[in-house]
Computed example of a mutant assay.
Amino acid sequence: MSKVKKQQDKNARKGQIRIISGQHRGRKLPVLLADGLRPTTDRVKETVFNWLMPYIQDSNCLDCFAGSGSLGFEALSRGASAVTLVELNKAAAQQLKSNKSLLQAQQMQVIQQNALAFLQQNQERFSLVFLDPPFRQGLAQQSAELLAAKGLTDDALIYVEMEADHNQQAMPSHWQLLKEKIAGQVIYRLYQNSQQPKCTI
Score class of each variant (00 low, 15 high):
residue 14 K to G: 04
residue 14 K to M: 12
residue 15 G to L: 03
residue 15 G to I: 05
residue 15 G to Q: 06
residue 15 G to R: 08
residue 15 G to E: 00
residue 15 G to Y: 14
residue 15 G to P: 07
residue 16 Q to P: 05
residue 16 Q to C: 09
residue 16 Q to E: 15
residue 16 Q to I: 14
residue 17 I to R: 10
residue 17 I to L: 13
residue 17 I to Y: 11
residue 17 I to E: 11
residue 18 R to D: 05
residue 18 R to T: 11
residue 18 R to E: 01
residue 18 R to V: 05
residue 18 R to W: 06
residue 19 I to K: 00
residue 19 I to E: 12
residue 19 I to V: 03
residue 19 I to S: 02
residue 19 I to C: 00
residue 19 I to F: 01
residue 20 I to V: 03
residue 20 I to N: 11
residue 20 I to G: 13
residue 20 I to A: 00
residue 20 I to C: 00
residue 20 I to H: 06
residue 21 S to R: 03
residue 21 S to E: 10
residue 21 S to Y: 09
residue 21 S to W: 11
residue 21 S to T: 07
residue 22 G to N: 02
residue 22 G to S: 02
residue 22 G to Q: 05
residue 23 Q to G: 05
residue 23 Q to T: 13
residue 23 Q to R: 09
residue 23 Q to E: 12
residue 24 H to V: 14
residue 24 H to D: 15
residue 24 H to M: 12
residue 25 R to T: 10
residue 25 R to M: 13
residue 25 R to H: 13
residue 25 R to C: 14
residue 25 R to G: 14
residue 26 G to M: 00
residue 26 G to Y: 04
residue 26 G to L: 01
residue 27 R to K: 15
residue 27 R to H: 15
residue 27 R to E: 14
residue 27 R to P: 03
residue 27 R to D: 09
residue 27 R to I: 15
residue 28 K to E: 14
residue 28 K to W: 14
residue 28 K to D: 14
residue 29 L to C: 08
residue 29 L to Q: 02
residue 30 P to D: 09
residue 30 P to F: 15
residue 30 P to Y: 03
residue 31 V to Q: 04
residue 31 V to L: 01
residue 31 V to H: 01
residue 31 V to Y: 00
residue 31 V to M: 10
residue 31 V to D: 00
residue 31 V to K: 06
residue 32 L to F: 12
residue 32 L to Q: 13
residue 32 L to G: 10
residue 32 L to I: 15
residue 33 L to V: 14
residue 33 L to Y: 13
residue 33 L to A: 12
residue 34 A to I: 03
residue 35 D to E: 14
residue 35 D to P: 08
residue 35 D to T: 11
residue 35 D to A: 15
residue 35 D to N: 10
residue 36 G to L: 03
residue 36 G to R: 01
residue 36 G to K: 00
residue 36 G to C: 02
residue 36 G to Q: 06
residue 36 G to W: 02
residue 36 G to E: 00
residue 36 G to M: 01
residue 36 G to S: 01
residue 37 L to R: 11
residue 38 R to I: 07
residue 38 R to Y: 13
residue 38 R to A: 08
residue 38 R to C: 05
residue 38 R to N: 07
residue 38 R to G: 10
residue 39 P to K: 02
residue 39 P to I: 02
residue 39 P to F: 12
residue 39 P to D: 08
residue 40 T to S: 04
residue 40 T to F: 13
residue 40 T to Y: 02
residue 41 T to R: 02
residue 41 T to M: 06
residue 41 T to E: 08
residue 41 T to F: 12
residue 41 T to G: 06
residue 41 T to N: 06
residue 41 T to P: 05
residue 42 D to A: 11
residue 42 D to G: 07
residue 42 D to T: 02
residue 42 D to Y: 07
residue 42 D to P: 00
residue 43 R to L: 11
residue 43 R to W: 10
residue 43 R to N: 06
residue 43 R to G: 07
residue 43 R to Q: 09
residue 43 R to P: 03
residue 43 R to A: 10
residue 44 V to I: 10
residue 44 V to G: 07
residue 44 V to W: 08
residue 44 V to F: 05
residue 45 K to A: 04
residue 45 K to D: 11
residue 45 K to C: 07
residue 45 K to W: 08
residue 45 K to L: 07
residue 45 K to T: 07
residue 45 K to Y: 10
residue 45 K to S: 09
residue 46 E to D: 09
residue 46 E to N: 09
residue 46 E to F: 13
residue 46 E to V: 09
residue 47 T to H: 11
residue 47 T to Q: 10
residue 47 T to S: 03
residue 47 T to E: 10
residue 47 T to V: 08
residue 47 T to L: 11
